[in-house]
Design a protein around this nucleic acid. Structure first.
Length: 116
DNA sequence: CTGCTGACTGGTA
DNA sequence: GTACCAGCCAGCA
């Protein structure tokens, strides 16, 4: 039985439109915890549901991240959607990156960042 | 309850 | 540009 956070992450991944990709951090943010990128990775690893396009989830640096050792497959799947991926990096990463369409533009409530 | 691990991220060297 | 370190979050022993 999936935990609340886990199903949230899965829902976010399923929202990623075809031809687009999202970073673990973005998914974590959509799931409600912007800092839980690692937890997202853990969930992805355990997620074997074919209805979840886990191959669209990549690292923030534009890398493919991980795929349990099937990176070649991930690269193929992405390329099939029009996303060209180099050996260590995705091309046009910033252009295919999907940020999740939230309400209307600017939101000040989430500007909060760590203060020293 | 305590501690370690990991499909991560950001900053520093 | 790459390499290493510390921080964060959730899951599991």
């Amino acid at each position: 039985m999936a935990s609340a956070f886990q199903r949230r992450v899965i829902a976010a991944v399923r929202r990623i439109p075809p031809g687009r990709v999202a970073t673990y951090g973005d998914i974590a943010a959509l799931a409600g915890s912007p800092r839980a990128a690692r937890a997202v990775g853990t969930i992805m690893r355990d997620c074997r549901d074919p209805s979840v396009p886990c191959h669209r989830v990549i690292a923030a640096a534009g890398g493919l991240g991980g795929y349990g050792g099937h990176l070649a497959l991930k690269r193929e799947l992405l390329r099939a959607e029009g996303i060209e991926a180099g050996v260590r990096r995705i091309r046009q990463f910033a252009e295919v990156r999907w940020r999740g369409v939230r309400g209307s533009g600017t939101r000040k409530s989430e500007v909060r960042r760590r203060e020293s």
